[in-house]
């Protein structure tokens, strides 16, 4: 265990590089782009990166529980979009001409957030019940939920964009702590959620049960874990996080429409997987998920700075998913 006294060999260095390939790649990209475009390393850009990552991180944390229990949640993106639309309609300026609910009084923001989380937990409950009680495969159950939620969202918004948000709402999502540009509120909120989830995964029986179910569902049942209850709670937690993410995203963009959130579940799943969450279940760490999501956002912004067109950005992102996972997975594949 006394690593400090051990001599560092070439194999150790190679192992370190391979084991941390994703992080090293990320730093390298930042340095190169930073040298070529000094604006890249600026407080404003940093804030931009953190804000983007923050929302994605919260969504990815939601999906992570589903992935670790060998499930998935394809309804994540649409739930985020729906939550954003609901939050936006409830928090419009009273003087805004196209206000959806004209007679709505000025609601406290905290009440809106808590209300959203409760309502979306119920959506998660439905997902969980379908999966845990009716034994519908998570892929199918949440695929159905994805479509249903989108339909409801179109009905709810009348397929019209929603604007005119209250400034106290948008300030939370675009402002910074103590006015320091590079500490956006979004980053602080995401950090707080990350810590909560880390504690849940590592320090509570519920968290250990999640890993156990992913590791071997039969053994978990024999060991007295209430598998159905844990799974239902995983999907409820996930939806609660989507609600929060949707609320933040609506205010950050300054307006929403039903199309918001499309495909976010795939970005979240990619982030988790890049961060070492095993699709075979039972493995996944909060820190890894953060790195996975960060890599994605960093690359996107770096490419914008480099003047790469959006079309090529997709190509690179796709390649990164596969390459990063190929590097990362060697840590878990038993050496033969």
């Amino acid at each position: 265990m006394t690593k400090s006294t051990k001599k560092i060999t070439g194999a150790d260095v190679k192992g370190f590089i391979l084991d941390n390939a994703v992080i090293i790649m990320m730093v390298a990209v930042a340095v190169v782009v930073g040298i070529l475009h000094p604006n890249f390393i600026s407080a404003y850009n940093f804030k931009n990166l953190i804000s983007n990552t923050a929302v994605r991180f919260i969504i990815a944390l939601g999906v992570s529980g589903c992935l670790i229990t060998k499930g998935t949640d394809l309804s994540a993106g649409r739930q985020v979009g729906f939550a954003a639309c609901i939050a936006a309609t409830l928090l419009q300026r009273s003087d805004y001409a196209q206000k959806v609910f004209t007679k709505l009084p000025e609601l406290p923001i905290a009440a809106v957030v808590v209300g959203l989380i409760i309502v979306f937990s119920l959506i998660g409950l439905i997902n969980g019940l379908i999966i845990a009680l009716l034994n519908v495969p998570p892929f199918i159950a949440t695929l159905g939920m994805q479509t249903v939620i989108y339909g409801f969202c179109l009905v709810f918004t009348g397929a019209q964009p929603i604007g005119g948000l209250r400034t106290d709402y948008t300030n939370i999502c675009s402002g910074s702590l103590f006015g320091i540009t590079w500490i956006p509120y979004l980053g602080v909120i995401a950090l707080f959620v990350g810590i909560l989830m880390w504690v849940m995964y590592n320090k509570t029986p519920h968290g250990k049960s999640i890993y156990a179910i992913g590791g071997n569902e039969n053994s978990a049942e024999v060991s007295g874990i209430n598998v159905r209850k844990v799974k239902i709670m995983v999907y409820m937690t996930a939806s609660a996080l989507y609600a929060l993410a949707g609320f933040l995203l609506g205010g950050k963009a300054g307006g929403t429409s039903a199309s918001l959130g499309q495909g976010y579940e795939l970005i979240a799943i990619a982030g988790c997987t890049i961060g070492g969450v095993s699709s075979n279940g039972g493995i996944g760490k909060v820190g890894g998920i953060l790195v996975g999501v960060l890599v994605f956002e960093l690359l996107k912004i770096a490419m914008q700075f480099m003047g790469v067109t959006t079309a090529y950005t997709y190509v690179v992102q796709g390649l990164v998913i596969v390459i990063a996972v190929a590097f990362d997975i060697r840590k878990y594949v038993a050496k033969k």
């Binding site: 156990a212 053994s219 007295g224």
Partner: peptide
Amino acid sequence: GSGIFGVLSVEDNISVASLRDYL
């Protein structure tokens, strides 16, 4: 099939049924 949690540690495998006794 219904005993071990293959990818989990020895410690997790020993403690899994009694986690709520150690709070």
